[in-house]
């Protein structure tokens, strides 16, 4: 599956109501590091299809979600299990780091 776009309107349904863990990538189009991790985030969405949902929050368009989860730096990744966010991962330097952090 390709990553889904998360907004304040669909957050409750797609993230809080999800039956699998949800990895959410907070990003913005102007952020170079966000572009660099994007291919890996896309790949994780396919590789772990069925075990994990991958979503993306564009912080320019979703300031409410950015504020609610206190995202100060992008890219920040959050992993939601049963609707609750764990420790954030800020600007990962490798795919391996994301896989370790997410416990995949």
């Amino acid at each position: 599956m390709t990553p889904i776009s998360i907004t304040k309107e669909n957050f409750a349904q797609l993230v809080e109501g999800a039956e699998t863990p949800v990895l959410v990538d907070f990003w913005a189009p102007w952020c170079g590091y966000c572009r660099r991790i994007a291919p890996v985030v896309d790949q994780l969405a396919q590789q772990y299809d069925g075990q994990l949902v991958v979503g993306k929050v564009n912080v320019d368009e979703q300031p409410e979600l950015e504020e609610r989860f206190q995202v100060e730096i992008i890219p920040t990744l959050l992993l939601f299990r049963d609707g609750k966010a764990g420790e954030p991962l800020v600007n990962p330097g490798s795919k391996a780091q994301i896989v370790d952090w997410a416990g995949l």
Binding site: R35, R36, G93
Partner: peptide, 10 residues
């Protein structure tokens, strides 16, 4: 380890 480009990507 991450994505194509290395230093160039930044």
């Amino acid at each position: 380890k991450l994505s194509a480009g290395g230093q160039m990507a930044t």
